[in-house]
Design a protein around this nucleic acid. Structure first.
Length: 1032
RNA sequence: GGGCAGCUAGCUCAGUUGGUUAGAGCGCUACGUUCACACCGUAGAGGUCACAGGUUCGAAUCCUGUGCUGCCCACCA
């Protein structure tokens, strides 16, 4: 006996499956000649923290692909690993250091800090990999890589060295986003803007020795008054009138196409232009002349003389028409400074305080300096006006502190040459981005070919392999390194030499008395990530792994790192190996909460995947995520707290999601959330954030489990009498024509469903694959096939056949669902294996025993001959008849136990078809059939229904509720008549008859005929009921 | 400012090249627990497909415009 518990136990199953897979290392891929290869590299999660739902989605989809290909017989590699995430990780560890020990990184020193971060990394890497395994990810766990491990480091050094050698690395001043807390430059992508209330200060700059007719001062406006300490000019447009004309013309142009609603605003702008032309333009013209003449202004507070310059950056249509220029602290001003050869005056120390250039303000923070500058300006009368204004203030994503634009020496990678092959790869179709629309942002971004600033003033990361040396000649260098292919040098941007080497040992060397000093900076994290597909496979060594698995097959990621990561992988992959790193990029949706906000720990609106795995199972999580991965849009996931005491779900709102404790509205007991910090709260049980979205996956697992219980119980019945012949699955199904209708139907459906699901997965339509399989397994296999197998199992003549077909159906479903729900399918498959032994499917290799695990069983490939639309159609008629009887039973409130008698009037061919299904109909609808054929007639007191061209008469005898039936028929007839009118009108329309395709017209006619028949039938029944009503 | 997407049942979403009486899951209503599964079954209610025009014999689907929501990029002295 195979007695299974009534409920599927996901915890036990998950543990068993992982042991099975791990024991046989079924996820491992070893290079092997002559096999089709499928390979994927994981987007390495940051070691900053635990995995969130987005990771769960990303990795579920990869696992679906990987498991499918593995079952299809590909040599399949999924490369796992984690990312050192330079800034993010260092920021987290530094913040903790400060909070817990009140120490800065400088207190600790470089070596000690890096040690601390490694310890952090070990802890989180372990946790992340554990979570991936809990999720069921079938990564090759023998190959776990880390972007900062020795192998990746060797690749980074080699790649950087090659770039340096080719002159693609350059050193330069650059205005960077300076994080004063972490004291490093951060990229634009690591900056977020936040709206804060600020001011707009109008400041007067006096003209030095104004001549008669010249203005004595100019007014400029700024949101950052303290930056005036670094001003090295004030700009005015060189030809204000022309610029104003051009600007006005642009606005008029816009007015021509603007909507009525926008018109007033534009008109106001035009009025503004007129006023400016009248009041401001003459002054600006004078100032432009003065600028050309090299006149100077007196910088307020510091008294420095600064030039008035003519530059197009100053817009006559904005503000006073003049703009202060602070080249070292504003990106646009920096450009002006470069164009006009202005001094670049850096007033900032790396820690965010002002330096000596700020004179009396030196030592103050920017914040304090602003207050003092404003106060002093007010005192000297040079503060003309202060407006309130909402400004967008840049913050560092990592330290959450305000960003200061700051001029610093940085390393850059020149993109002018590198970007082109990466552009061509996508525009030429060698790298296909799915969905296609995302290719546009990739191409747009790369087309700018902006240099990539790669240095970071951090300690956690790949140290840039460049050394600086002074006081030596090139001959000295040649003497020292001339015979080494791993060393290159340059002096064009520096006093002395920059020496680059892929060889770490350079660190200890000296040449000709000159000391090599290593650059203190590390590389942008994305540099090592850009090498991920080939570095993880062993590059620059020409390994068998690299030869076998590179280029990889697909990359699965989310769209926010399409440029940061994907584009750079293509660039570096092509540069290093000459080949694209992957041929397809699938961009999956983002998961948002019920309000459309991105989930994040800091908002408290996230769902922890582990909570779902714990409570509902990894398969439930995967099923839900896969079914949400639709092509067109991001997915919203309503989040609830689950009361740990009573299980009640409490909708998560903007209000309650930030509370440390919540009282359950049902059982009144309190529970804690992720915010709990005081002891009283921490002592409470935790209420996990969950979503009901995951429940259908859990329910589905249980459905499959119970279908299996049924199948296994039915196999036990094999101990009884069996008159029918045993069935050889591999040979016996090759000729489906000999089978009964239900079995032909099952095979046909299995073949269609396999085809559809396989194609959906091939095309990254995960939600559709999931839906197809769910609907088939539940509605067709369980609700229909399994139900109608019941009478057949009871019949010794049909038992063998029914048992075999149940096994074929269930086994096929398990294989198709395995990539999405690996645990429950494996667990069940093992039970089947135990109970039903070696039951190889037609697509299994006939000379080999069944494999030890579903994970490496063959993907179904049903013969095309199984597909039989006519049978599917016929079977549909059968189901419709059953549904019709059930409908009558329900609407007449007949208890399920009451056995009813029905007569089915059907045309000859339909009757022939339905006749063998008599036991099935009787069993599924709980009826007895008194007559089936063209002459079957309605018994008195019958309720009627029609389905698939048949009339179904259910003998209700004295059960019938005549009034209810009359009411229903009246309503029904109105409805039918309405449809008929619509159809008749349509068919009467000459244009429709003339222009619509014949097939459509024929279809409409057939439908009309059907409606007419139905109306006649129902009208007759109605008359009959009315007569009975009158007589009773 | 530029670009992209979305708006379909109470909620979350499907709806393939325009052709039925627009579907699913959850939720809701009624009935049902010997017979695989109450994490279930059977049946039901529930939609002017955001709005306005247009193309067409025919529009949720194609075109134009409007509104709202979200995302990306650029910029805001």
């Amino acid at each position: 006996m195979h007695e299974l518990p009534k409920q599927y136990d996901h915890k036990a199953a998950q543990a068993r499956c992982r042991t099975l897979w791990d024991t046989h290392r079924l996820w491992h891929a070893e290079p092997e000649a002559g096999r089709r290869v499928y390979s994927v590299v994981i987007p390495p999660p940051n070691v900053t923290g635990a995995l969130h739902l987005g990771h769960a989605l990303n990795n579920t989809l990869q696992d679906v692909l990987v498991r499918t290909r593995r079952m299809q017989g590909f040599l399949t590699l999924w490369m796992p690993g984690t990312d050192h995430a330079g800034i993010a990780t260092q920021a987290v560890v530094e913040r903790r250091l400060l909070e817990e020990e009140k120490l800065s990184r400088h207190d600790l020193g470089r070596e000690k800090l890096v040690e601390r971060i490694w310890a952090w990394k070990e802890q989180y890497e372990k946790r992340i990999l554990g979570q991936l395994r809990d999720l069921g990810a079938s990564c090759d766990w023998d190959r776990v890589r880390f972007t900062l491990d020795d192998q990746c480091a060797a690749a980074v050094r080699e790649a950087f060295f090659r770039l340096f050698q080719k002159g693609l690395v350059r050193r330069g001043k650059r205005l960077v986003n300076w994080d004063t807390f972490l004291q490093t430059a951060v990229s634009d992508d690591e900056v977020f803007h936040e709206q804060v209330k600020g001011h707009f200060w109008h400041i007067r700059y006096d003209v030095i020795d104004p001549k008669p007719g010249e203005p004595a001062s100019v007014t400029v406006a700024t949101t950052r008054p303290e930056t005036l300490l670094g001003d090295t000019a004030v700009a005015v447009h060189p030809s204000p009138a022309a610029a104003l004309d051009a600007a006005e013309a642009a606005v008029r142009q816009k007015r021509a196409t603007a909507s009525a609603k926008e018109q007033p605003e534009i008109d106001a702008q035009l009025d503004e232009f007129a006023a400016r032309r009248r009041d401001l333009l003459p002054t600006l013209e004078t100032l432009a002349t003065m600028a050309h003449a090299g006149r100077q202004l007196r910088l307020p507070l510091l008294g420095r003389a600064i030039p008035l310059v003519a530059d197009e950056w100053a817009k006559p249509e904005l503000g006073s028409g003049c703009v202060k220029i602070t080249p070292a602290h504003d990106p646009n001003d920096y450009d002006v400074g470069k164009r006009r050869s202005l001094p670049m005056l850096n007033i900032l120390n790396p820690d965010g305080t002002l330096n000596a250039e700020a004179g009396p303000y030196a030592g103050l923070t920017m914040h304090k300096a602003r207050k003092k500058v404003v106060a002093d300006l007010e005192a000297t009368g040079q503060l003309i006006q202060v407006e309130d204004r909402v400004i967008e203030l840049a913050h560092s994503d990592r330290s959450k502190t305000p960003i200061e634009p700051y001029l610093a020496d940085q390393w850059f990678i020149r993109m002018d040459e590198l970007a082109q092959p990466a552009l061509d790869a996508v525009t030429g179709g060698r790298v296909r981005i799915v969905p296609e629309r995302y290719a546009k942002s990739y191409v747009d971004w790369l087309s700018e070919k902006r240099d990539w600033p790669v240095s970071r003033q951090l300690w956690w990361g790949h140290r840039i392999p460049i050394w600086h040396v002074t006081g030596v000649t090139e001959a000295d260098l040649r003497q020292a390194f001339g015979d080494r292919a791993t060393v290159a040098w340059r002096s064009d941007e520096v006093d002395g030499w920059f020496v680059c080497s892929s060889d770490e040992s350079l660190a200890t060397e000296t040449i000709a008395g000159g000391q090599l000093t290593r650059d203190p900076d590390v590389l942008d994290t994305w540099f090592s990530s850009a090498l991920w597909p080939h570095s993880t496979l062993g590059w620059p060594r020409q390994t068998a792994d690299l030869a076998t698995f590179y280029p990889t097959s697909a990359l699965v990621t989310s769209r926010d790192i399409l440029t940061l990561w994907v584009a750079r992988m293509v660039i570096m992959g092509v540069f290093d190996t000459g080949e694209i790193p992957f041929s397809e990029v699938y961009i999956h949706p983002k998961i948002l909460d019920r309000y459309g906000e991105t989930m994040s720990k800091s908002k408290g609106n996230g769902v922890d995947p582990l909570d779902v795995i714990e409570t509902l199972g990894a398969d439930a999580l995967r099923f839900a995520l896969a079914s949400m991965a639709t092509e067109t849009q991001d997915v919203r996931m309503p989040v609830e707290f689950q009361c740990p005491a009573c299980g009640q779900l409490i909708e998560q709102t903007v209000q309650n999601r930030v509370k440390p404790r919540i009282d359950c509205p049902k059982c009144a007991k309190p529970f804690r959330t992720q915010w709990a910090s005081v002891e009283a709260d921490l002592a409470l049980p935790r209420g996990p954030a969950v979503s009901e979205k995951f429940e259908s996956g859990r329910n589905f697992s249980n459905k499959l489990w119970n279908a299996t219980r049924f199948v296994l119980m039915s196999l036990d019945a094999a101990g009884g009498e069996n008159d029918g012949p045993p069935v050889d699955i591999q040979r016996g199904l090759s000729d489906p024509v000999s089978l009964e209708l239900a079995d032909r139907w099952l095979l046909s459906r299995l073949a269609s469903v396999t085809r559809e699901a396989t194609q959906a997965i091939d095309e990254y339509r995960f939600a559709e694959a999931t839906r197809i399989l769910y609907a088939f397994a539940w509605d067709e296999f369980c609700s229909a096939y399994l139900e109608l197998s019941k009478p057949r199992l009871a019949d010794p003549a049909h038992r063998h056949q029914a048992q075999t077909m149940l096994l074929v159906g269930l086994d096929t479903i398990l294989r198709l669902l395995h990539p999405i729900m690996p645990f429950v399918t494996e667990e069940i498959w093992q039970h089947l294996r135990e109970a039903a032994g070696d039951r190889r499917m037609p697509w299994d290799e006939s000379d080999k025993p069944l494999p030890e695990s579903l994970m490496v069983a063959r993907w179904p490939v049903p013969p095309a001959a199984w597909i039989d639309p006519r049978t599917e159609n016929q079977f549909g008629s059968f189901l419709a008849v059953v549904a019709a009887i059930r409908e009558i039973r329900a609407r007449q409130n007949v208890p399920p136990k009451t056995r009813l008698m029905v007569a089915i009037r059907a045309a000859g061919d339909v009757a022939t078809l339905l006749d063998p299904m008599r036991p099935a109909i009787e069993s599924m609808a709980a009826v007895g059939i008194t007559a089936l054929g063209p002459d079957a007639s309605a018994p008195p007191a019958a309720a009627t229904a029609s389905a698939a061209g048949c009339d179904v008469f259910v003998d209700l005898a004295d059960l019938v509720d005549i009034d209810a039936e009359i009411a229903r028929l009246v309503k029904e007839n109105e409805k039918t008549a309405g449809f008929m009118r619509a159809k008749q009108a349509k068919l009467a329309d000459e244009k429709f008859a003339a222009r619509a395709p014949e097939a459509v017209v024929a279809k409409e006619r057939a439908q009309l005929a059907e409606l007419e028949a139905k109306l006649a039938r129902d009208a007759a029944a109605l008359t009959d009921f009315r007569r009975r009503q009158a007589s009773s």
